[in-house]
Each structure stands twice: as structure tokens, then as C-alpha cells.
Design a protein around this nucleic acid. Structure first.
Lengths: 180, 180
DNA sequence: GTCTATAAAAAGATAGAC
DNA sequence: GTCTATCTTTTTATAGAC
């Protein structure tokens, strides 16, 4: 278990927060350094370029997805239900890394878009044994993508058009009925 | 029917194309002017600022959604099937305006995000009479959102993870079975 | 309506002190 | 490891000629 430097992690946290809360435009190196409480020079010691900073975020995403795949396999409510429920953003580290990466991808960062497609393919492989056929798999994946898309759009993650509580339960029941 | 100046429209086309093809980062005023075949001064005559250019795109989206709602109500295959089928990007003007607006939204443009939520609400109102309940409505909307999200991520709109042909037909059948 | 020239600010990156 | 100072390039915007 290699422990990355604290300062490096808080720079990454700040970059991620700026992306999630204010969009790709706002996530400059200057703003990131300021939000992390370091100078631009301090930031550049840990990440030598904007590109390196972005790669740092993609690496973090990869690690968090590894962990999530483990959780998913062990979920008592079932793989599909776990996957859908955790697609509704509640601000956990994976949610944040995913939204932040999606902002980079839409900004025109090709490797961020590729990273997102890669993690989606890994989730697809994990779900496939638990659904009836490919159409059912597509349905589950697309509903999850839709949930993330809406999470990414609304500034307020709690209100907005994303179903929560009983509405989310009903949606999951509906998808599971089609998929199993 | 007010006919907007040709040059103005081609500036808007160029801006939209840059957003769709290369991302928000690439869609600068300089690049837009160049792609439209005008000078920066020429562009600024039609759109006095970056903000005005972006508002121009949002206005275009609004108009195209008006037209689409008319088409949707008259679709012989049914409202839900029409909605889902046209959520798979085939490069028509509405697809492009929607993806371009989504890039602006993720870039941090609050009014673009609001515009997207507004058009989503209009589609929801049009679909509601044609589905069983709110969970079914959420399902249809989220599958569509998921399709757009994936369209927006893959540089190549034809390959990539979005179902086409028979796979799309199977998906639509599955959703309709749950929704009607 | 469209152009060139130029200003003003912001962004990414380098150099070197501490 | 972290800082300040500086440089370069890019981006937005203005002014004014044609």
C-alpha cells in the first residue's frame, strides 16, 4: 500500500472539486493551486503539467473502480440493484472522480473519454452474468449512464430530475423485472 | 418566419461543430471564426461576445426542440419508440445542438445546463400521457439520457457502445414492454 | 458587414531562491 | 517541497479603416 504525499492528494482533491462544482473552464492550475492552499510552484512540483494533473485524476478513477467492482460482487441486494443504486450521486469518491473525468472528456480530453469507456466496459463485464441477454445489459447500463448524466448536469445534486427514495426503488424494481 | 443572415448561421454552425467534434476547449472565438471562413471582427459583428455566441446556440436548440415535439406527437411508431430511436445520434441538427449544449454545460456554463434541464422537462411532459406511471417515465427518459451520454463520449458516433440496428430494436421493445 | 491591428487579461510553464 | 518572479502563448475584446 504506497501512501502518496498528503499535499499531492489535496491538490488532486482541489482539482476534482473545481471540475465537479464549477466545470472544466474553472479548473485552471492557478485556481487549483489556490483551492489546495499551495502556490503554483508547489502544485507544479507534484504535477509537472496540466496533462500530468489530468492523468493523476484518471489514475485515481481507475483505483476507485477497482474497489467498486469488489463491492459490487459482494453486494447482498444483488449486482444489478447495487450498480443502479450507486449510480445516483451521493458525493462519494467514485462519484466525484467519475463526474470530474466526464467534465474533462467533454472538454475535449481524448484520454479521459477513453478512460470512461474503459470503466464502462469493466462494469458491463461484471454485470453480464447477472442479466438475461445483451438487450437487458444495455438497459441496465443506459439507465446508469442516464443517472450519471443527470447528476452531472444539475448543480444541486439532491433536487433536480434524478429519482430518489421511493421513486428510485420503483425504478430499480422496474429495471430488474426487465433484466433478470 | 424571420430569416437570419447566412453568415451568422455559418458562424453558429462552425461553433457547434467545434464543440461536437473537438470539445469545449477547442471552441474558441478564433477557431470558430476561422472554421466559418470569417475574421474575428466579422464574427464579432454577429455575436458581440463569447456569451452571445453561446446564447445563439441555446436559442437554436430551443427552436429545434419545438420542431421535434411536433414530430414526436405525429410519429406513427408511437411517441416512446420515436423518442428512443431519435436519441441515438445520427448527426441531425437537433442531435448536434444537444451535444454542443451539453459540452457547454460541462464546461461550467450554468445557462446551458438550465437549458438542457428545461428541454428534458418538455420531453417528459410530452411522454407522460404515453407511459404507465412515473417510474416508467423515468425509465424512458434515463435510457434516452444514457444514449445521449454515450453519443457525447465516443468520438466515432457509429462504432462505440451505443446499440444500433437489431440491438436497438430489442432495447426499444424491452423498454416499451416496461413502460406501456 | 467585414476586415486588420492591437490591447488586456488569463493560462500554462520555467527559473531559481529558500 | 514550497515559494516568488517572470516569460510565452492563448483568448477575449476594442478601435477604427474600408
Amino acid at each position: 500500500m504506497s501512501r502518496p504525499p498528503r499535499a499531492r492528494e489535496s491538490v488532486l482533491d482541489a482539482f476534482e472539486s473545481l471540475l465537479v462544482d464549477d466545470g472544466e473552464r474553472a479548473a485552471t492550475m492557478d485556481a487549483t493551486a489556490h483551492a489546495a492552499g499551495v502556490s503554483k510552484g508547489g502544485l507544479l512540483y507534484h504535477f509537472a503539467s496540466k496533462d500530468a494533473l489530468e492523468r493523476g485524476l484518471l489514475d485515481r478513477l481507475e483505483t476507485l473502480v477497482d474497489e467498486d467492482l469488489g463491492q459490487m460482487a459482494a453486494a447482498p441486494e444483488g449486482t444489478v440493484a447495487y450498480y443502479l443504486r450507486t449510480s445516483v450521486m451521493d458525493g462519494d469518491p467514485l462519484d466525484r472522480a467519475l463526474i470530474a473525468t466526464s467534465r474533462l472528456a467533454q472538454g475535449g480530453r481524448a484520454d479521459a473519454a477513453e478512460a470512461l469507456q474503459r470503466v464502462r466496459a469493466r462494469w458491463a463485464d461484471a454485470l453480464r452474468p447477472h442479466v438475461r441477454d445483451e438487450a437487458a445489459l444495455a438497459l441496465v447500463l443506459l439507465v446508469s449512464d442516464g443517472l450519471y448524466y443527470n447528476n452531472a448536469l444539475s448543480s444541486d445534486p439532491v433536487s433536480g430530475p434524478v429519482p430518489r427514495g421511493a421513486a428510485l426503488d420503483a425504478l430499480i424494481a422496474l429495471v430488474e423485472a426487465s433484466a433478470h
